[in-house]
Design a protein around this nucleic acid. Structure first.
Length: 747
RNA sequence: GGGCUCAUAGCUCAGUUGGCUAGAGCGUUACAUUGACAUUGUAAAGGUCAGAGGUUCGAGUCCUCUUGGGCCCACCA
């Protein structure tokens, strides 16, 4: 044996060996109790980051349960990550001087698909490098045809059950990326936005968005505001930059009399609040900003200007006309930004598919309340409850091509010029269609217009028998498919998997995915299967840079975990991430800790070397590995039964190891991986090596050797889930049979 | 505006249902060792556990408030 442990010599070889022998498959223990973890699917097009490296705790659990003799399945998969991937691809297009609008939907989809295929293997091999015992034979991808079919079925069922509906509503729309988003994908930022005090006939109101005034269909005051009682319910005449206009005044509780002048303009087409106000007072909806981010024809001579330009031009003209009383230039408010491109999102009215969350969330909330699902750390149960309580209907339509196209068709004959999303994708001016065909969309009910299928094109329109049907060009929000991941995967891997492994044992992921992912998996899982998708939720924290700052590409402080694996070894990286980090807490990447872990591996290596040297039958140069196999005593119980005569120090050590086994087992069972790893580190190094080996060194005989060897193998087994490679390597050297990963957990 | 979370040795962090004489890694200091260990071992220094109250036989741990970080949520025109 070399004097030092070199992970580069062993890791790849060992992993290949495990995989070839089929050790990652649950069939290794076909009759064992089922234990399943579904891997949170990384972006198929992405690269490994620390969020993935934290999946080490899943490997700890899987390896532990496998050693317990259970039928353990860790199921890998990848996600097509719609918006993310299309965003990356469009960047590439831009480098080539092209844009997505140069291609039709099918071509663009194909291009992205090919691009993803090229990169798809990357993430898998990176996960292998970390030693993850994933059953690759069951790997799934969110765009596998069998998965897609199940997603269609879910959608169809939800449509039939009235849990999915089409509605014309305001969405957070990014005019740069050309798609709407759900509430979750909006990031808020404080910005200085001048507050303009505008004269509106006899009234003065304050607004940050004068350019939307052409879309005003009402003016609101607080119903009890004594200043404005005489106007409520009246129509007033106001002078605007486009001439005179008449406008309805309403009283609404929404208005804060303390803010500004206590008067507010109501622009239902361009503000979420106003949309609701408009609905309450039956005010029409008038869209003045298009999906291209420009003013439309309702803006008169300002049509065609981008929002920013229009604002400046309008304000200038209003000032010239004396329509602006004052401007508060220091005013700060919160604006919604696109989480991808950081541009200001525009609330725009659009027909979208929505998931009615009410009935779903009720059950999902109850499951956690009744502890059918336990969340660790426990305080996240509060987060979960709060989020669920405030959940609004979920917009699942995305105006991007990269994703699962929504299997809904509309009859062109019955609905000439319906809401064709192609127009938005090509950025043609589709505004007229909306304002014309939806003269009063606030009361519009278009639910029955759509034919939803399991993916196949309907033969004809059930109403007019026309065969001229067009599919919705939108795709599903990526979370709609990944939100069904546990059963989508298990229903499509091997027959019997779903019955055997569902509900899965635990969903382990970063706590940042509680809302966007975990909550949706619970809702959709319970809806489709009638059962919770997993019994436990286990959250890990984020890994920040060594200074505690969040790693991000823009900051340039991203550390690639693979480089650390190369430098320190996968075992050391895994150990460093688990050691000293309380479950669910964020941590800063610590090089000293990595170093300590690497040294620990080296210590183990040298403990093995020492034991090998002291092996009674070894020492003669001609001795072969096979004849020199060390007698193994596999269970501590055997030692405790006085099968051999033991020195009293050996006996004491047996007891200590026994106690350690109990504690480590308990810690892993309760997801306290930090305790387990700390105890192992402390015991192996400072008890077993420093004291016991030093003691036994001078009095070693055949019996004490057997105890030493057996106890050390026991310790290696306890350590194996955390440091799989080195423990495997040493297990072989110490005469262990087969592989440590399929050996039994010490009792 | 709500909610969550953190504050413990020079640094990075553990501390599980209150029992602590408060620990680890790295760093620092002294000594030992060329050994199974590109080292390791033995020992030492270093902390009014953010501050103030309270509950308790007992508080780093539970409660209240204060201060200072971080995160999340919310439609303030």
């Amino acid at each position: 044996m070399d004097k030092i442990y070199n992970h580069r010599d062993v890791e790849e070889k060992i992993y290949r060996d495990w995989e070839e022998k089929g050790y990652f498959k649950p069939e290794i223990h076909p009759d064992g109790k089922p234990y399943c973890i579904v891997l949170p699917p990384p972006n198929a097009n992405g690269a490994l980051h620390f969020g993935h490296a934290m999946f080490a705790v899943e490997d700890v659990l899987i390896r532990y349960h496998r050693m317990l003799g259970e039928s353990a399945l860790w199921l890998p998969g990848t996600d097509h990550a719609g918006t993310e991937t299309q965003f990356v691809f469009e960047k590439k297009l831009k480098e080539q001087g092209k844009s997505r609008f140069d291609f039709d939907q099918e071509t663009l989809y194909k291009m992205i698909s090919e691009y993803v295929e090229e990169n798809k293997g990357g993430i898998e091999n990176q996960l292998r490098k970390l030693g993850f015992s994933l059953d690759w034979s069951r790997q799934k991808y969110t765009l596998d045809p069998d998965i897609v079919l199940l997603v269609y079925k879910t959608f169809k069922k939800m449509h039939e059950d009235g849990l999915v509906y089409r509605d014309y509503r305001l969405v957070n729309y990014c005019t740069f990326d050309g798609t709407g988003y759900s509430d979750l994908e909006v990031v808020h930022e404080e910005r200085r936005s001048p507050l303009y005090y505008i004269k509106y006939g006899p009234l003065v109101l304050a607004t940050t968005r004068p350019e939307t005034k052409f879309g005003d269909t009402g003016i609101a005051v607080h119903p009890k505001d004594p200043r404005y009682q005489q106007y409520i319910g009246k129509v007033i005449e106001v002078e605007t930059v486009l001439g005179m206009a008449s406008i309805q005044v309403v009283g609404d509780e929404m208005v804060d009399p303390e803010f500004g002048t206590g008067v507010v303009k109501v622009t239902p087409a361009h503000d979420f609040n106003d949309y609701e106000t408009g609905k309450r007072h039956n005010l029409p909806l008038k869209q003045v900003i298009g999906f291209d981010g420009k003013m439309n024809e309702h803006a008169g001579k300002f049509a065609g200007l981008y929002i920013k330009q229009a604002r400046a031009a309008i304000v200038e003209e209003m000032q010239a006309k004396g329509l602006i009383e004052k401007i508060d230039t220091e005013y700060v408010n919160r604006v919604g930004l696109c989480y991808k491109c950081r541009n200001v999102l525009e609330p725009l009215p659009l027909e979208q598919w929505f998931v009615k969350v009410g009935p779903l969330k009720e059950k999902a909330l109850e499951a956690v309340k009744k502890s059918e699902i336990k969340i660790t750390p426990k305080n996240f149960e509060n987060h979960y409850g709060q989020w669920m309580d405030n959940l609004r209907d979920w917009n699942i339509s995305r105006q991007i091509v990269w994703g699962i196209r929504i299997p809904a068709w509309q009859c062109v004959s019955c609905h000439p010029g319906g809401s064709k999303a192609t127009d938005r994708i090509s950025h043609k001016d589709s505004i007229a269609e909306f304002t014309v065909s939806s003269s009063n969309p606030l009361q519009n009910d278009k639910k029955s217009d759509w034919i939803v299928t399991e993916g196949e094109k309907p033969d004809k329109c059930p109403r007019c028998e026309s065969t001229n049907l067009e599919q919705d060009t939108d795709t599903f929000d990526t979370w709609f498919s990944s939100g069904q991941w546990p059963y989508l995967t298990l229903m499509t891997t091997k027959s019997g998997d779903f019955e055997k492994f569902y509900p899965t044992a635990v969903m382990e992921t970063g706590y940042d995915l509680l809302r966007s992912w975990v909550s949706r998996m619970i809702m959709l899982g319970m809806y489709i299967t009638g059962e919770v998708p997993f019994k436990d939720v286990l959250f890990h924290g984020l890994v920040n840079d060594p200074y505690g700052k969040k790693m991000s590409k823009s900051k340039g402080n991203v550390v690639n975990p693979l480089e650390l694996v190369e430098q320190y070894g996968a075992d050391a990286v895994r150990f460093a991430l688990v050691y000293g980090n309380a479950t669910g807490n964020d941590q800063s990447l610590s090089y000293p800790k990595l170093d300590a872990s690497r040294k620990f591996a080296n210590k183990l290596w040298n403990m093995t070397r020492f034991i090998e040297m002291k092996r009674p039958t070894s020492g003669h140069p001609g001795g072969s590995e096979t004849t020199d196999r060390i007698p193994q005593i596999d269970s501590i119980a055997t030692l405790q039964n006085d099968t051999i005569s033991m020195h009293e120090n050996d006996k004491a050590m047996v007891e200590k190891v026994q106690a350690l086994v109990t504690e480590v087992t308990k810690n892993i069972d309760s997801y306290q991986f930090n305790f387990a790893s700390e105890k192992l580190y402390e015991f192996i190094w400072h008890e077993f090596a420093d004291k016991y080996i030093e003691d036994v060194k001078n009095r070693i005989d055949e019996n004490s050797f057997m105890v030493l060897n057996s106890l050390f193998v026991t310790l290696l087994k306890l350590l194996h889930p955390f440091m799989p490679f080195i423990t495997e390597e040493m297990y072989g050297k110490l005469g262990g049979e087969d592989s440590i990963m399929i050996s039994s957990w010490p009792k």
